Simulated scan of single mutants.
Amino acid sequence: MVARVDLTLVVAGALLLCGCADESGRVQGHSGLVTGYVLTAPVCPVERVGQQCPPRPVPGATVVALDRDGVRGSTLTDTAGAFRLALPDGRYVIKATNVGGYASTASEDVLVSDNPVQITLIVDSGIR
Rank of each mutant, 00 (worst) to 15 (best):
D114P: 00
T120P: 05
P55C: 05
R56W: 13
R68E: 11
A106L: 07
V71F: 08
A61C: 00
A96P: 12
A82S: 14
G60A: 14
N98Y: 09
D78G: 12
T75V: 14
A65I: 07
V63G: 07
Y92C: 06
P88M: 09
L87Y: 12
K95N: 04
D67I: 10
G73W: 10
V123E: 01
V123G: 04
R72Q: 13
S113F: 12
T77A: 02
I122W: 02
R68S: 15
A65N: 12
A96I: 10
T105I: 04
T105M: 03
D124S: 08
V93W: 03
V123N: 02
D69S: 15
D109M: 15
G70F: 13
E108P: 06
T62K: 08
I94R: 05
D67L: 00
F83C: 01
P88F: 00
K95E: 09
S125T: 12
V71W: 01
V110L: 05
L111T: 12
V71G: 03
V110A: 00
V110S: 00
S74D: 12
G90S: 11
D114L: 14
V63Y: 05
P116H: 07
V110N: 02
V58K: 00
D69C: 05
I127N: 13
V117Y: 15
D109A: 11
P88I: 01
G60H: 12
A65K: 06
D67H: 10
G90D: 09
D69P: 00
S104D: 12
G70P: 09
S107Q: 11
E108H: 11
V99I: 07
A65Q: 00
V99P: 02
A61T: 03
T77Y: 00
V117S: 04
L121D: 09
A103E: 02
L76W: 03
G73A: 11
A86G: 03
N115L: 10
S107A: 13
R84S: 15
A65P: 06
A103L: 12
G60P: 04
L66H: 08
A106V: 03
L87N: 04
S107C: 02
T62V: 12
V112Y: 06
A82D: 04
R68C: 14
V99N: 09
